[in-house]
Design a binder for these strands. Structure first.
Length: 896
RNA sequence: GGGCGAGUAACUCAGCUGGUUUAGAGUGCUACCUUUACAAGGUAGAAGUCACAGGUUCGAAUCCUGUCUCGCCCACCA
């Protein structure tokens, strides 16, 4: 067995093992078995992405679940896939194109899409390869992509159904517009960030003036954060109750620079407290103003091009960028003495979630889904507990969003994505541009929603059909993922077997984008929930608490970690330090935990294998042969298996990890393995060593798939080739043994006490010491006698007697553990004075605790009201500490 | 403006329904140990008024209220 290296080397085997797993095709059971299905769907990473720590955490959790369930005998399915990420992917390929000096408009839609597909073929599966590297045991043959034929079919089907149900419409509203990506965004895609901006105070003169010659002429002051939008102003609004503006009925103002006449409108929604209480109204560039405009019948004047430059309606500012225009306008207003001041003002500004450009609220024609009707059921299933969030606090977040849901803007002015399945008949509609068509609901003449391009217009028979140029929001395909990946709208076997799925594991950022919408889609189109449990894990941050992101340069690349310490160590570390749903603060050093753990397991296994010398121990264990240590480790293993299973059920992965860590390190290695070196019955011990190791490897396998597989396959005589399909260790009731646990505790206590004395009194490691054991009863005596060799070896001492009333020798120190008193005679001279302080401090500590218990016991209320067993325990503890204090006090006296 | 999370040893964090834990772990620190699985290791040790203030209770790190610090999410105050 000298060929097993002393250090665990993850690199050697990982890829080989992974490849072998794939070949064996062990990822889910045969379809015709009668096993209970268990399915999870991957949150599909987008094709432009590369594996980051968030993915590593997310997929490790999923892999743990699926491997665990597979071992438990479920018919498991973990369906992988990727997301086409419309805007992000288009941006990437556009950048590439820009490198060649080209714009997408120059090569045209078709050519551009071809280029993206090429790019996707080349780079789109990077993340899939990386997930494999992490050890993910997905059913890779079923890998799906949101733009696959089947999934695209589902998208069109859903669009059609929602359309005919009257839930899809097209119209002009204020939407979030990214000027850089030149597309509409949904509310969720605009990330609001606190920005320190300015509040600009501007004078709007009464009608007839464009500039003020004197300071005291008639004007009204408005405050705005976006002065450039004044180019589109059509009114000024004040609160009808605001006394400052009570005399203004019927008057009009003039919009500076543009010289447009502005009405003064009165509306309750205007907050008199803010700014000057007068609000400039720009219906085309602000959602509040848009509503005001609608209520008061105002015109909307859109003054911006899609790219954020001012258009022809902006007069002299035409062609300026919006921020450039802002400065220019302020300058001009100053010249005209219409500018009063700026004030610092912190407010939340929307940013494009793909390119972080400041989002412009902009009036445009877009397609929307009415969400309120879909939300009703989605609220109900969560309230009724058919879907459970872990941790539960997310329930509230979900419900709050769902109850205040707003229409979903689903059209995007980009090319990469699912083209909107709407065709317009040019004969029926005389519009120049199909973008300008309003569609309030189904049945509109000249508008045809269809899975394929219609040959002719169903109304007039005309053949001049033009498809809507826009594509759908990427999430419009993602929200169908749980069933579209299983073949929907076909009624497939997979769909019937695996829908609803069991668990969804995802990050908090994606609850609204994805989780909530999947629930709505599942209920609407499958009439059933998409999953039962939603586990929301924390966000991976760096040590300063900042979210890890490429642009900040604070990322720890999981692939670097894998290269340095291996996938297993990465997985185990990140799971260990992530308690349920809490954010994770990562630094590179944290992966040493997993690395050291892997090495410890490796070496423990190495020891076991060395002892076997290549031959398999027979599996029969006759219970008569079992030593105390054997019975204890078997029982202790049962406890561990129980704890791990229970923790997994509750999605408490770090609890499971620490139970595994504690067992193998502090029970199996520190004690059982050490004791085994001095065990009398070599054969039985060997069997137990192997048996427990094998059980442990199976428990650990979901967490550390590679190392457990490698060790498993080194164990001679193991018939089950792959640990990944071995069974999950259930409790072996016959090995439960509370007595062994208690006895072992005593034995460990005695050994520790002897070591303790040695260290406390500075007795050299090499020096031999004698120990006398004073026991109270026959049972203890027998226990210690039986295991005396362990005490002598583990504590490096000679036991000179185990008796009921063994007298205390002269010049000895005593210790008390579990009712057993041990005496250690100290040979040479001991400087008691030197030690007195230390001993006294110890006594003080104990005494303080003892006093606490005394106080408690003297409290009548406690004795009367607390449950009897609590009181009894307290009394026993009092007794124990009392004796210990006495024992310690005696030590100083006895040594004199 | 609303909501959520965190504040426990020098550091990073566990601690689930209040009493069996003298408040734990890992790292770091101190002393000793190269004992033939492992120095990425072993043995022993030091280290904490569980953010603060009240309350409920026989009993609070744990439940309630308030305060303070930090972080996050949501929201159309221009």
């Amino acid at each position: 067995m000298k060929d097993i290296p002393i250090r665990y080397d993850p690199q050697k085997k990982e890829e080989e093992i992974y490849a072998a797993w794939s070949r064996e095709n062990l990822f889910h059971a045969d379809e015709d078995t009668a096993r209970t299905p268990y399915a999870i769907v991957i949150p599909p990473p987008n094709i432009t992405g590369i594996l980051h720590m968030g993915h590593a955490l997310n997929n490790t959790i999923q892999d743990i679940l699926i491997r665990w369930k597979r071992m438990e005998g479920f018919e498991t399915l973990w369906m992988p896939g990727t997301d086409h990420a419309g805007i992000a992917t288009q941006n990437v390929v556009e950048r590439e194109l820009a490198g060649e000096g080209l714009k997408r408009e120059e090569i045209g839609r078709e050519k551009f899409l071809e280029k993206i597909w090429q790019w996707k073929e080349e780079y789109g599966s990077t993340i899939i390869r990386q997930l494999k590297r992490l050890g993910c045991s997905c059913d890779w043959e079923r890998t799906r992509f949101t733009m696959d034929g089947g999934l695209s079919m589902a998208v069109r089907e859903v669009f059609g159904r929602l359309y005919s149900d009257g839930l899809i419409y097209k119209g002009g509203y204020i939407i979030n517009w990214c000027p850089r990506c030149a597309t509409a965004l949904s509310d969720e895609e605009a990330e609001h960030r606190e920005v320190e901006g300015m509040l600009y105070y501007i004078k709007y003169p009464v009608m007839g003036r464009d500039k003020l010659e004197k300071e005291n002429e008639d004007y009204l002051v408005v405050a705005t954060t976006r002065p450039e939008t004044m180019l589109g102003d059509v009114a000024v609004a004040v609160n009808p109750k605001d006394p400052r503006y009570s005399g203004l009925e019927g008057k009009t103002l003039v919009l500076p620079i543009i010289k447009r006449e502005l009405r003064i409108i009165f509306d309750e929604d205007v907050d008199p407290e803010f700014g000057t209480g007068a609000l400039k109204v720009t219906p085309a560039h602000d959602p509040v103003d848009f509503e005001l405009g609608a209520r008061h019948g105002l015109e909307s004047i859109n003054v911006m091009h899609p790219d954020g430059r001012i258009n022809a309606l902006g007069g002299d500012y035409k062609g300026m960028d919006r921020f450039e225009c802002r400065e220019a306008i302020v300058e001009d207003l100053k010249q005209r003495k219409l500018f009063i001041k700026t004030e610092k003002h912190v407010h939340a500004v929307g940013h494009c979630y793909r390119c972080h450009t400041v989002v412009e609220p902009r009036l445009s024609k877009q397609w929307f889904v009415k969400m309120k009707p879909l939300a009703i059921e989605a609220i109900k299933v969560v309230k009724e507990g058919r879907i459970t969030f872990y941790p539960s606090r997310w329930t509230k977040v979900y419900l709050n969003w769902m109850e205040n849901i707003r229409p979903w803007c689903i059209s995007r002015q980009i090319w990469w994505g699912h083209r909107i399945p709407v065709w317009y008949c040019r004969d029926c509609l005389k519009y120049e541009n199909v973008r300008d068509v309003d569609v309030k609901g189904p049945g509109k003449r000249g508008v045809c929603v269809s899975m394929e391009k219609p040959d002719k217009c169903p109304v007039c028979g005309g053949t001049d059909m033009e498809q809507d140029p826009d594509v759908l929001d990427t999430w419009f395909s993602s929200w169908l993922w749980p069933f579209s990946t299983l073949g929907w709208p076909e009624d497939t076997g997979e769909l019937r077997t695996f829908y609803p799925t069991d668990a969804l594991v995802t990050a908090q950022e994606i609850i609204f984008f994805w989780v909530a919408r999947m629930i709505m889609a599942g209920l609407r189109f499958r009439e059933d929930i998409p999953f039962r449990d939603v586990y929301i894990h924390g966000t991976v941050r760096d040590t300063t608490g900042t979210k890890m992101s490429k642009s900040l340069g604070n990322v720890i690349d999981p692939l670097d970690i894998i290269r340095e310490v291996g996938s297993d160590a990465l997985r185990f570390s990140i799971i260990s330090i992530t308690s349920q749903g809490q954010d994770v603060f990562l630094s590179k050093e944290k992966f040493e935990l997993g690395r050291n753990f892997a090495n410890k397991l490796w070496n423990a296994s190495r020891y076991v294998l060395m002892n076997l010398e290549g031959s398999a121990p027979d599996e029969e264990i006759s219970e008569g042969d079992l030593t105390l240590a054997d019975r204890w480790i078997l029982s202790s293993f049962n406890r561990t298996a129980e704890k791990v299973t229970k923790s997994l059920k509750a999605y408490r992965f770090n609890d499971a990890a620490s139970a595994l860590y504690d067992f193998i390190w502090h029970k199996y290695c520190d004690w059982y393995l050490e004791l085994s070196k001095f065990s009398g019955s070599k054969g039985a011990t060997q069997k137990i060593l192997v048996k427990v190791l094998k059980g442990f490897l199976r428990l650990l396998h979901p967490f550390m798939p590679f190392i457990t597989e490698e060790i498993w396959q080194k164990i001679p005589g193991e018939k089950h080739k792959w640990i990944m399909t071995a069974s999950w260790p259930g409790p072996e009731k016959k090995y439960d043994n509370a007595k062994a646990a208690g006895d072992m505790e005593k034995l460990i206590g005695v050994i520790t006490a002897v070591r303790n004395v040695r260290a406390f009194w500075n007795i050299g490691h090499a020096a031999g010491i004698d120990v006398l054991l004073n026991v109270k009863g026959r049972e203890d005596r027998e226990l210690l006698e039986e295991n005396v060799r362990y005490i002598e070896q583990m504590a490096r001492c000679s036991v000179r007697g185990i008796e009921k009333d063994i007298p205390r020798p002269d010049r000895s120190v005593a210790a008390l553990v579990e009712g057993i008193r041990l005496f250690v005679p100290l040979g040479g001279a001991v400087d008691i004075e030197k030690e007195r302080t230390r001993v006294n401090k110890k006594i003080e500590d104990l005494q303080r605790y003892l006093n606490g218990i005394d106080k408690k016991l003297k409290n009548k209320a406690f004795v009367e009201k607390a449950p009897e067993d609590v009181v009894r325990k307290e009394e026993a503890r009092r007794q124990k500490f009392d004796e210990q204090v006495k024992t310690l006090k005696d030590n100083l006296g006895a040594l004199k």
